[in-house]
Write a protein that binds this DNA or RNA. Structure first.
Lengths: 202, 202
DNA sequence: TTTTTTGAACTGACTGGTCAGTGCAAAAGT
DNA sequence: ACTTTTGCACTGACCAGTCAGTTCAAAAAA
């Protein structure tokens, strides 16, 4: 419907306004009035589209992680389609992660800031979407072990977490403290670490 | 004398109260009343000891990162004293980082949540203490390159950031989503990644 | 007509920060 | 010895301001 797309557009504007404000200030410090103003809509519109400030935030989280997950999956599929190894798929995911963070730095920032918090209303939502994203990495690691590309000794959940952390923190640090570097620089450094070309690797 | 230690003890109690509350709820969502109550002092005492809620938080950040930095440095020195290589020093720092996060999970959580935020009062403070901590890692990497243990091609700032991220995220994920794992498990997984024993490493 | 948005007024709960006053141990005064 | 003063550390009621959420009549799309 036409009506549906109009609402959709309004919601999108609210997402974009909320994500930057919350990334900068945090959830509690961001007021609904600010979000409405930045989105260029009336306050009433916020409450017409979302039941509450928390609900807006939760849907924003789902929306954002959905984009990331799709992007990671796409990277894996493309690698497979062009006959790459599982290690190539891991490398492609690193790049996809960097591109995502480069495109949506505010979302990433906010995600990291909230992920490990406890006692928050959206904690369970967050645990679910996190698992969806991490699972993509874990699946590739698992396939790589089964295919003999990786040692059977590796600890899949922990290694996946470490890889995600490597990308996440390197990218955020890049944006915040070394913005002059290029995406390729960052990718090269991470790739090197992944492939054991930092510490000799025997 | 006596008075000074009394103040010190009160400030310590306030740090401990603030760190868990802010880690759970975030800075803005945590009220000064809550901090005072958890510390077992009156609200006025908070303002007797700290100029404002923000100042309390800033000093808390300095205090905590100071502990971490000291711990990392100690790990490096011990390795050097027992004749270990620079790679051994890196590994020892990984463990020291894990031990720190295990001991002060709330602080770590709060640090990560605030580190990449912009437009916050304590942003500059945070940039300074971050650099102090990261510099310890960078120094070891630099020594390792000079000593020929690491390739000259590695990008020291980016690799340092990636290593820190690897430890940080793996540890927080361990605490939040896989608490049944042991510190040794996590250390082993990270060690393997560092030493290129995940992706064959040729 | 129906859906969506507007925008301003209002409420009630909550919060950072203030300040006059309390308790008390050590120093000063006698 | 004993009284008085000093000032540090702490207290908690209080205030002025803020914010999420509500309401609603009217306008603007579609």
């Amino acid at each position: 419907m036409e009506s549906s797309t109009r609402r959709q557009a309004t919601r999108q504007k609210l997402y974009e306004a909320a994500v930057t404000l919350i990334a900068e200030q945090g959830f509690s410090a961001t007021t609904v009035d600010e979000i409405a103003e930045r989105a260029g809509v009336a306050k009433g519109t916020v409450y017409y589209n979302f039941a509450s400030k928390s609900v807006l935030f939760e849907e924003l989280l789902r929306h954002g992680v959905g984009l990331l997950t799709a992007s990671l999956r796409e990277a894996v599929e493309k690698t497979a389609a062009s006959g790459g190894s599982k290690i190539d798929a891991l490398d492609a995911m690193i790049r996809a992660g960097l591109v995502f963070i480069d495109r949506y730095p505010a979302f990433t920032q906010l995600y990291v800031a909230e992920l490990w918090r406890t006692n928050r209303a959206w904690q369970s939502t967050l645990a679910v979407v996190r698992q969806e994203a991490v699972a993509v990495v874990e699946d590739v690691l698992r396939d790589a072990v089964e295919g003999g590309e990786l040692s059977e000794e590796i600890d899949i959940p922990l290694t996946a977490a470490a890889l995600v952390g490597m990308v996440l923190v390197a990218a955020l640090d890049w944006q915040a403290f070394q913005p002059e570097r290029s995406l390729d620089d960052v990718h090269a450094a991470l790739s090197r670490l992944l492939q054991g070309r930092v510490t000799g690797g025997r």
